[in-house]
Design a protein around this nucleic acid. Structure first.
Lengths: 208, 208
DNA sequence: GCCTGCAAACAAACCAGTTGGTATGTTTGA
DNA sequence: TCAAACATACCAACTGGTTTGTTTGCAGGC
């Protein structure tokens, strides 16, 4: 911990950047070292294998993105449905950036590693599940508050939201920009609003 | 065309199987040859490079899956909305199989190659777009037939449907089975039904 | 003086693609 | 007609570069 405290976290930052754009397999240890500005010796000092870096990268992703969402403003809304819709608006706002800056590391790695590395798969799955669970809380509270008796569960809607986002990322990569993804979030928002719209009782107004 | 007519198509079959489960980069030419039962010489006789096999694989995927959907029964329904919902039911029925048998080659490759190979990206993008366009036709007809004036376009809904499916595949890989994906299709079906449900005018009944 | 944190060189395995050849069938022209 | 020339489909061995991981050594704090 003497010479350079940040070597490990510089490797983790490099892993997020490179794996998101090239994928896990195509990202070599040399690539990671070059991007992080460290040598192979430093890499294998901090991670016992490339696979363990993959696992650490997924955990790191969970922590860093978790902090971003925890800090977002929508958590302050008193209405739980507003918080869910606020989450969607927040996600939509992120889609203005470059494709490589708004896509999901966990989703990318899952697609590539699901049959190859159980450890990486578990770490990615935990990342997605943890994130979905936060939204699920607000959905569950909203179901209670709005007094609806849905044919679906808070869990399934939370996972559906994640599925739409993951799929929107795939289409964004295919088309080269986030416009498709924004349209997808619009459809998703309309659906969520609809689910809580009791027949005859209009939803109270909220800001966009 | 004398010795063994099927060498090329055996390689293509092998590519779909291997790339879907391991990803493009992790699938080596040797893997493909072993799976197809051919030698490296045969491989490079039929494909000038691994990348060109990737492109050919995406085209092959388009053709083979296109044939499956073209042969499905829902095209016979007279009501265009029934055809759209029938498409969703058909997709849901596929989710009973193994994860590696219902996921999308194009979506998997896009995630991995979007920043690495423009040629493969184009081929995958075309595959997804072509497929979405078929659904878009029925959506457009349904908009007319049902006389609705939506805030969305047939194109954006068709792409949204693909996004949900692609995202559902990611979650299926993460959780190891298609149950999450089936829940997603249920949510999606509810949404599509809702979109065509004019206030006060119930939708005519159709079979599940 | 010994552990941590890293550098540099090295090694063994692996990978895409090449080479040089063979077997089989097809075209051509005397 | 039929044989020489050509084309196609394929094979086994090889090559040069790349990849993950190791080893050895060294600088500085405790």
């Amino acid at each position: 911990m003497s010479r350079n405290v940040q070597a490990r976290s510089r490797i983790l930052d490099a892993s997020v950047k490179l794996i998101r754009s090239k994928g896990y397999t195509a990202t070599t240890v040399d690539d990671l070292c070059a991007e992080a500005g460290v040598t192979k010796g430093a890499f294998f000092h901090h991670f016992k294998s490339k696979e363990s870096l993959g696992v650490a990268s997924a955990h790191y992703w969970s922590e860093t993105t978790g902090a971003v969402f925890d800090a977002a403003g929508y958590h302050g809304y008193p209405d739980p449905l507003d918080r869910v819709l606020g989450y969607l608006d927040f996600r939509k706002s992120m889609l203005r950036r470059q494709v490589s800056e708004f896509t999901c590391l966990a989703g990318t790695m899952v697609q590539e590693m699901y049959a190859s590395s159980p450890d990486i798969l578990d770490a990615c799955c935990a990342s997605i599940t943890d994130h979905a669970t936060k939204v699920e809380m607000d959905i569950a509270t909203a179901i209670e508050r709005y007094g609806i008796k849905p044919a679906w569960t808070a869990n399934s809607l939370a996972l559906y939201i994640q599925a739409v986002l993951q799929g929107a990322f795939v289409l964004s990569k295919a088309y080269g920009d986030g416009n498709v993804a924004m349209d997808c979030v619009d459809h998703l928002r309309r659906y969520v609003e609809q689910l809580f719209l009791k027949s005859g009782q209009p939803l109270q107004r909220r800001e966009a």
